[in-house]
Design a protein around this nucleic acid. Structure first.
Length: 107
DNA sequence: AAACTGACTAATA
DNA sequence: CTATTAGCCAGTT
């Protein structure tokens, strides 16, 4: 079905992430009013209705790294897209959230 | 209906 | 730094 579940809420927040910025699952969960169910955020993104429904590639884990399991190539796609938006990865394959973390309003 | 699953996080050891 | 534990909860089997 569609529109069911609170995933739409997650998608709405993800769409607000500006280009060249990234947000963590926990952050999305909080902004979406889901409290601490960061897992559900990742789950929601996995179940995207279709590619382009929301910029899923701008969501990373708390360490600023990609959480997608390797093997499907999705992780590569995510990194590629982020780099194209100007997000830099360090040697460890992590993003400096201090610089690229999405600061929702403020400042 | 009960058990299992999972693109997570934070705290502990 | 890595490993383990617990919390969280909707969707799937």
């Amino acid at each position: 079905m569609h529109g069911t579940g609170h995933w739409e809420r997650v998608y709405a927040v993800v769409r607000q992430i500006p280009r060249g910025r990234v947000a963590t699952y926990g952050q999305i969960a909080r902004l979406a009013g889901l409290g601490r169910q960061a897992r559900q955020v990742g789950y929601a993104l996995h179940a995207l209705p279709w590619e382009g429904y929301a910029p899923w590639h701008r969501v990373v884990n708390a360490r600023g790294g990609i959480s997608l399991p390797p093997g499907r190539g999705d992780d590569v796609t995510q990194r590629l897209r982020l780099e194209r938006e100007g997000v830099r990865f360090d040697a460890r394959g992590g993003i400096d959230l201090k610089r690229f973390g999405w600061k929702r309003r403020l400042r």
